[in-house]
Design a protein around this nucleic acid. Structure first.
Lengths: 256, 256
DNA sequence: TTTTAGGGCAGGTCTAGACCACGGGGGGCC
DNA sequence: GGCCCCCCGTGGTCTAGACCTGCCCTAAAA
């Protein structure tokens, strides 16, 4: 019934410095991806503990993590099972290029401006900085399959990206931030509202003045520091957001 | 520095049948709400274990839960601290009344229709039912502080709510569903887009024709069954959504 | 006065057990 | 043959320790 624990490849390295439960989590993740189908049962916690020579509590910690990621689910009295992978259209902290590629469209961008400015009172408040702090402003028209999709404006504290303005404007902003500056966005907040296209935005997006747009303001953080504030206007006829919901106070529910 | 563990009211009931860590979690939650301010330190895990006569692992399980809820955060070498309560505008599976009350506004509703219909092809697809299945259609104009906020249309499979149509239209739909029919919405999905007000919607919402609106389509589930499909049009000038983001693949990061 | 080395205490991880409630299936009873 | 109950394996919870690293503060050294 449950796959034999012996079938799982890999071993724990107690000298690596990586927590044992993290190692086991990755071993299990690989096993799940490579050898399991949705609904497959994992070996029992006790079997895993014996197979890897660990205490059951340690095994549980690894499994807890995967349950928290909704990769697997527990059923009391039955076992632990691989879940159907979740729909992947969720609002996430991805870059525009990643996002469009996931949607099967060809992303492109036209740079409208790429310069250093001083933080206005508004920007200073949004970025939690002092007024006048040097910022890199990067404004683009983003295209999908050759058609305008959105107008996008990013503001990044200049001291986080020294030398960025010396080169060409990046093709994928988040890629450059992570690869050249080690700034991997970890979490963020989106503020979503509907708005009407202003004349200038309308011309850029090739829509009527007053056409509905989705305005998304994003604050993106690395650790505790805000690294990117952006405002985007998406054409409502080309872009929808999908947001998963949870009952407030609902902890990781087993069902669903 | 850290509050003394003795200052925490409450005790563990080992005969109650409720898991000890759950009891402790609620004791701590009460303590945090009633006696702490953001940044306050909780007693150390070892102090709590001694205060309540528990093993430290058990205390950690209670604390883990609160950390998972982002009520508190751990800092290695320092302690466990109460977090600033997060902005409370997050997208959640709440009813309109709850949502508006949380925002400090007075909710009200004007019923536009309350009737049984057969599922159209479109509704059948959205609700994953057969065409013609009886549905309860409940259409309302929702107000906040007396001003129109949104036009809201809910579709619920009639067999889930027998007798609902015999009574008065409910004031709070989700309340009636949970209290009279035991249908507590557990999870859902929102599809968010921007749109322009149609003439009829514009008149209801007291805005210009073509004014930007936030269109939110919601599928809400109890267990694995969809119980409610709704379409809402929110006035863009009165309503914004706040959405938290996470890097795909990012586990619960300790920071933030 | 400044720098450095420890000590103490915080959380992080891990162990090796224990007992519980739940679920399914098989064997025994009717 | 059919029904029911009990056994056993599963995850859920809990214990009482152990040792680790990271952080701050203090006291000693430079």
């Amino acid at each position: 019934m449950a796959g034999s624990a012996a079938a799982i490849a890999g071993d724990i390295d107690r000298t690596s410095g990586t927590a044992i439960w993290v190692q086991l989590r990755e071993i299990l993740r690989t096993y799940i991806v490579e050898q399991c189908r949705p609904g497959s049962a994992l070996p029992s916690e006790r079997d895993l503990a014996e197979r890897f020579g660990l205490a059951r509590m340690t095994v549980r910690q690894a499994i807890d993590a995967l349950v928290g990621e909704e990769v697997i689910e527990r059923v009391v009295g039955l076992g632990t099972f691989v879940r159907r992978p979740k729909l992947d259209l969720q609002v996430k902290l991805t870059s525009y290029s990643e996002e469009m590629q996931r949607r099967g469209m060809v992303p492109a961008a036209k740079v409208l401006s790429f310069e250093q400015i001083g933080a206005s009172a508004f920007l200073a408040r949004e970025l939690q900085l002092d007024e006048g702090t040097p910022l890199v402003r990067f404004r683009r028209l983003l295209l999908a399959d050759g058609e305008p999709m959105s107008v996008d404006e990013n503001f990044i504290p200049a001291h986080r990206v020294p030398g960025l303005l010396d080169g060409e404007p990046p093709t994928s902003l988040y890629n450059v931030l992570s690869e050249q500056y080690g700034l991997v966005m970890e979490w963020g907040e989106d503020m979503i509202e509907a708005t009407a296209a202003s004349p200038s935005t309308a011309r850029l997006l090739n829509v009527e003045v007053g056409a509905p747009l989705l305005k998304i303001q994003r604050h993106a953080f690395v650790a505790r520091t805000m690294v990117d504030y952006s405002v985007s206007y998406y054409r409502a006829d080309r872009y929808k957001l999908w947001v998963p919901l949870q009952r407030p106070g609902a902890r990781r529910s087993r069902s669903h």
